[in-house]
Write a protein that binds this DNA or RNA. Structure first.
Length: 479
DNA sequence: TGAAATGTTGGGGCG
DNA sequence: ACGCCCCAACATTTC
């Protein structure tokens, strides 16, 4: 029998438009789909709690899909650099196929893997597909990486034709004998004591099928108005594809081409389509930056920010994490995150600005919290976006841009529906008080059943004063 | 993918 | 009719 090909799956948990699987399937060899739970290689960036919940269900879903093709998913745990060569030797694998990864540790790992596998006569092949644009494919005039979004967008979309997505394989040849596999349940990826995942189960359908359904629902119902409505957390107007993308349950090329097709069907979707494409390419820009500046998750891109006088304030950080800052839009966002593993993008900007500027807590603390609590936690997006808000990143918001949580709330959640949903103790306040309960009269508070300081906190800082402090600190940094 | 302070304009009230 | 003031609405500048 022909020697098998191991398909090493990572954040590409899909069959459609997954070139590693598709090429292996058409090679005429048995295919061994493999997932390794490797907490050691990424170190502190191993998958967090919410991500582990998602991962469990995504792996479960992929295994079912593989069974429908006469195959299965083999599970192993340990360091990839040890597990893979060992398994390849055991199975006498001809090759290991994988989608390329872009995290700081990935390059060296893939290089070393190639060497070790070659020792035992196993070829190692990487495939594109995780990104629309490979980091090397987009260069400035002098051959360097882009540090500003708009020129990156122009250069990338002009230079690269995005190939059409490829259909999933119709069948996968099983090996004569399956290697031993862990039981998914034995990995304990799901929370037990306590089971905090109820809100996640209500909110999401992890897996390739869920991703496809989400995409078509979004394109048919929300693409047209995406440009205006995507900033409204009180509306279901964003794609909510981020966790599916983060786990590779759907490829960006699939989304790209499906959106273009939706535009062709209905040309009036143009405005929304353009904005949506820009958002997809922000993800590309994040990966572009991460791959050229691997310190991005740890260190400020603009080095002068290393000496910013951050506040060591565990109490304030905790109030932020738990959604008890006293600013309704901030608390609503943090509670949505805690409950569902997700937060609306506009609200992410508001809560991030509040942590970094109002509370002067280092952006890395917010990045770490998001890493653990977001189902769409993605190293590149997370690091680049936090630095963008903090003002120390590439093409970042200028440091003096400080969000006012009251004004942002009034502008993007005008009737307070989002706040009422996630901060129910404020639900009975009138619209013109919902984003600033401290300005409600004693009578209004009583009527709404609120005892400020007891049932809902006073603001942990005064925004106006905090803003002045932030501006002064940033100014000192500059001078 | 800001907010707040400051500057400008123009309509209306009024002497 | 006219100049003056007020101030909202909008624009520009600054942080």
């Amino acid at each position: 029998m022909t020697r098998p090909i191991i398909v090493w799956l990572r954040r590409d948990l899909r069959l459609a438009d997954n070139r590693a699987i598709i090429r292996a399937a058409s090679a005429g060899a048995p295919v061994i789909p493999l997932f390794i739970l490797d907490d050691a290689t990424p170190g502190k960036w191993r998958a967090g709690g919410a991500g582990r919940w998602w991962l469990h269900h995504s792996l479960d879903s992929l295994d079912k899909d593989l069974h429908a093709l006469g195959s299965r998913l083999v599970l192993a745990r340990g360091k990839s650099i040890e597990v893979l060569p060992k398994l390849a030797a055991e199975c006498d694998a001809a090759a290991v196929f994988a989608s390329r990864a872009y995290e700081p540790w990935a390059g060296e790992l893939e290089y070393e893997l190639r060497e070790r596998l070659a020792d035992s006569g196993t070829e190692f092949r990487r495939f594109a597909g995780t990104l629309l644009f490979e980091p090397e494919a987009v260069k400035t005039k002098d051959g360097g990486p882009f540090k500003v979004y708009t020129p990156f967008w122009r250069a990338a979309t002009a230079a690269v034709e995005i190939p059409a997505p490829e259909p999933p394989p119709q069948s996968l040849m099983a090996p004569r004998e399956w290697p031993a596999s862990d039981q998914l349940a034995s990995w304990s990826l799901l929370p037990e004591h306590p089971d905090w995942a109820a809100g996640m189960r209500e909110s999401w359908t992890p897996g390739e099928n869920g991703a496809k359904k989400r995409l078509s629902a979004f394109l048919s119902s929300s693409l047209a108005s995406y440009g205006e409505d995507r900033n409204r957390p009180d509306r279901e107007a964003t794609s909510r594809l981020s966790p599916h993308l983060a786990f590779g349950e759907i490829s960006p090329a699939t989304i790209w081409h499906a959106a273009a097709a939706a535009l062709r069907r209905q040309p009036k979707r143009r405005a929304g389509y353009d904005v949506f494409c820009k958002e997809l390419v922000w993800r590309e820009f994040s990966y572009h930056l991460l791959s050229h500046f691997p310190a991005f998750p740890e260190q400020p891109f603009r080095p002068e920010f290393t000496r910013f006088p951050w506040n060591d304030a565990p109490g304030l950080l905790r109030a932020w994490q738990r959604g008890k800052t006293g600013y309704p839009i901030v608390d609503a966002g943090m509670r949505e995150l805690w409950h569902t593993g997700f937060m609306h993008n506009r609200v992410r900007m508001i809560v991030a600005s509040f942590l970094v500027k109002d509370l002067a807590v280092p952006w890395q603390a917010g990045e770490a919290w998001f890493w653990n609590t977001l189902v769409d936690a993605d190293l590149a997006n997370n690091a680049v976006s936090w630095q963008w808000v903090a003002g120390c990143g590439a093409d970042a918001a200028p440091y003096f841009r400080v969000f006012n949580p009251v004004l942002q709330g009034a502008k993007f959640d005008p009737q307070g529906a989002y706040v009422r949903r996630w901060v129910p103790e404020l639900a009975r306040l009138p619209d013109d008080r919902i984003h600033k309960p401290w300005e409600a009269s004693p009578m209004e508070l009583r009527a709404a059943g609120i005892d400020l300081g007891r049932t809902y906190p006073h603001p942990v800082v005064d925004h106006s004063e905090a803003r002045d402090r932030a501006l002064a600190a940033f100014k000192a940094l500059k001078g």
